[in-house]
Design a protein around this nucleic acid. Sequence first.
DNA 1: AGGATACCCTGACCGC
DNA 2: TGCGGTCAGGGTATCC
Length: 287
Amino acid sequence: MPELPEVETIRRGLAPHLEGRRIAHVTLNRPDLRLPFPTRLAERLEGARIGILGRRAKYLLVPLDTHETLVIHLGMSGRLLVLRPESAEAQGRFHHKIERLEQHDHMVIALDDGMRLIFNDPRRFGFVLLEPDATIETHPSLAGLGVEPLGNLFDAAYLLARFAGRRTPLKSALLDQSHIAGLGNIYVCEALHRAGLSPDRSAMLVKPREAERLVVAIRDVLNDALAAGGSSLKDYRHEDGSLGYFQHSFRVYDREGQPCPKTGCKSMVIRKTHAGRSTFFCPACQG
DNA sequence: AGGATACCCTGACCGC
DNA sequence: TGCGGTCAGGGTATCC
């Protein structure tokens, strides 16, 4: 489920429960996810106090007073839950269909106030790193990441420079984390529609004025998603990172065959694949 | 070297 | 109800 807005929403949701807490106990229920768990992960975490949560692209950063940072990537199906040990919520979780989730609770971090942070991931495309603070940015997984799309370094000039000479379709270029870090398949589709640009355009052929539109569209779609996540956060009593996407805000994603939502456009959303991933777009108003 | 493809894994869904 | 095929929001290894 997680692209940048979802990971950021999870970060905000987890922060009040984790920051300042000490890790009491760590349970690993298998040796690996997509990657092996770091060596001696439990011992290195236990006793550590958690600092201010951060985020880089789709990575959640959990700094510790041991001068190491726990890095969590949720992959496609990863979820983070915070549960009270004996709460009604926990009981409900067990007695309802969600009990199946426990089957994929791969890492459980018990805090000094009794709360438990649970990393659940059915597909196990997620992974966990534990690295010294000083070398986080140079870790192979993070070293090649491009700019944050909501940061000051992201603008039309940057996009044009990165796209120069790239024949790849615009859709693929936007998904490339080495250009813009944090966009995923959904928000790329949404941003292209908002900008009125075809996913099939060669990246190198995007004009300056179009790049401006694209930057605005990307920022807007991410900020809208963050606002939606933020509003749904308020409704959570036991904090739960698994907020999901704000379904109703999608204009083209997963809407194959439905009318293009752009005012005055009478065409239909179609689907095609780029580099193995589905792209949803309007062939009429995305040129 | 850049760009497309295969693959990791489980679950949901659809048509038969 | 079951079975097979398809698809899924990500990242990386490996090919051309």
